[in-house]
Structure formats: C-alpha cells, structure tokens
Simulated assay, not measured.
Amino acid sequence: MARPLRRRFCTALLGLAEAAVALPAAAEPQDGVDYLTLPARLPTDTGRKVEVIEFFAYYCPHCYAFEPVLNAWVRRQGDNIVFKRVHVARDAGVAPQQRLFFTLEAMGLLEQYHDKVFDAMHVERLRLNSDEQVFDWAEKNGIERAKFVDTYRSFGIQQRLRRADAMMDAYHIDRWPVVAIGGRYLTSPSHAGAYANEARTEAQQQEVALKVMDYLVAKAKQ
C-alpha cells in the first residue's frame, strides 16, 4: 500500500521571525529553541569528521538565498566536516528537479552544475518541472543528452530517490532548507534566526543559523 503523502513545503523564513519570542543574541544556542535534537542519533559514515547534510530543493527561493553563505561556511569548516546535500521530494512538479540533482551527482557533475541549476530556476526563470525541460537544459549546458537521459532513468537514480525519501522520514524533514549535523541535530535560518533579537531580515537569520551550526559542529565533535 502506498504511504500517505505528507505535506512538505519550503520554509517561510521571515514569517517565523515575527511570531517568535526574542532571546538575547549572545546567549548560547538552546535545544528546542535554536535547534532540535532527534530522539536518537542516526548512523553516519564520516569517521571522526562531523557529517553535515543540507536538505534543500532547487525551486525553493530560501534555499537559493542560503546557498552562497552556506558554501562559505562549508569552506571555513574545512576538515572538521563532511558536507552532503539531499534534494527533497514534494510533488510531481518537483520530481524532475530532484532527479536532475541526483543525476548530476551520479555523473560526477554536481560541483560543476549545481549553481547553474539554481540560476536557471531563479535568474532565468526556467521551471524545469518536466523531464524534457531537464533534458533540454542539460544538453544546452554541454552535457551529452543520451548519457544524461540513460542515467536519469536508471535504477541507480531510483535507488537514490528512495534513499532521499527514507532520510527525510528519519530526520523528520517537512520543510527546507534544513541542516542536519552529526546525525542528531537540526537547525535552519528560520529556526535559529526566529529567536534572535537582531534577526529580522533573511540575511540576518542566515548569519544566526551559521553561528548555531558552528556550535552544533563543536557539540557533535564532543
């Protein structure tokens, strides 16, 4: 029997800030306030390095806005972490974008094309909500169409999609962007920034989230 569909949505960053009670910006991040702790630590495969996973979607404007500051944070962390991304599922309109992400990943092209997909959607306003649109985009950007299509439709990509869905369930992901740290902690710009006095713009919320992420990486290393 098919599992009932769960409502999933892109985090509304600014609305949550107005609804929250402000806490001192300098206070140590608090569990249940600035981040959430899962009931049990999920397995990771990164050895002594801390696993950091971003759950995101290409269509999501807040994911797009978070991308440059998140990338800079990942670079600053260096060897402290192993950074991964998981493109979330939502509905049939998002499925081609999710398949696009995992196809690029499987082909070893993600680093080269990840930002280009974001720009295609948010600058060029391409919808990329059908397989053919994705195939046309890939070919236009210099990827061999036949090879891309074969990978896109492969059993291996189907397995990656199932694993992404399982990870969303395991981490209780129902909004995005969300960052999971050490298999145990969850935070996001909307979550961490909602409780800080100074965080009233999206950029400010992002900066607060990065501070919380620093704290959680250190906590996970302990």
Results as ranks from 00 to 15, higher is better:
Ala2Tyr: 12
Arg3Cys: 07
Pro4Gly: 01
Arg6Cys: 05
Arg7Val: 09
Arg8His: 15
Phe9Lys: 10
Cys10Pro: 15
Leu13Trp: 15
Leu16Ser: 10
Leu16Cys: 06
Leu16Arg: 15
Ala22His: 06
Leu23Phe: 05
Asp31Glu: 13
Tyr35Ala: 08
Leu36Gln: 10
Pro39Thr: 06
Ala40Thr: 03
Arg41His: 03
Thr44Gln: 09
Thr44Phe: 15
Asp45Val: 10
Gly47Lys: 02
Lys49Trp: 00
Val50Gly: 03
Val50His: 00
Pro61Asp: 07
Cys63Arg: 03
Phe66Thr: 01
Val69Asn: 04
Leu70Arg: 15
Asn71His: 15
Gln77Tyr: 06
Asp79Cys: 02
Asp79Glu: 15
Lys84Leu: 08
Lys84Gln: 11
Arg85Ala: 00
His87Met: 01
Val88Trp: 02
Val88Ser: 12
Gly93Met: 05
Ala95Trp: 01
Gln97Ile: 02
Phe101Ile: 02
Leu110Asn: 10
Gln112Thr: 13
Ala120Ile: 11
Glu124Asp: 15
Arg125Asn: 11
Leu128Phe: 11
Ser130Tyr: 13
Asn141Cys: 05
Ala146Leu: 14
Lys147Trp: 09
Thr151Ala: 14
Arg153Met: 13
Ser154Glu: 06
Phe155Met: 10
Gln158Met: 10
Leu161Arg: 00
Arg162Ala: 08
Asp165Ala: 13
Met168His: 10
His172Lys: 07
His172Glu: 12
Asp174Thr: 14
Trp176Asp: 07
Ala180Glu: 02
Gly182Val: 12
Ser188Ile: 12
Ser190Met: 05
Ala192Trp: 03
Ala194Trp: 00
Tyr195Trp: 06
Ala196Gly: 09
Ala199Tyr: 01
Ala199Lys: 05
Glu202Asp: 06
Val208Asp: 10
Ala209Tyr: 02
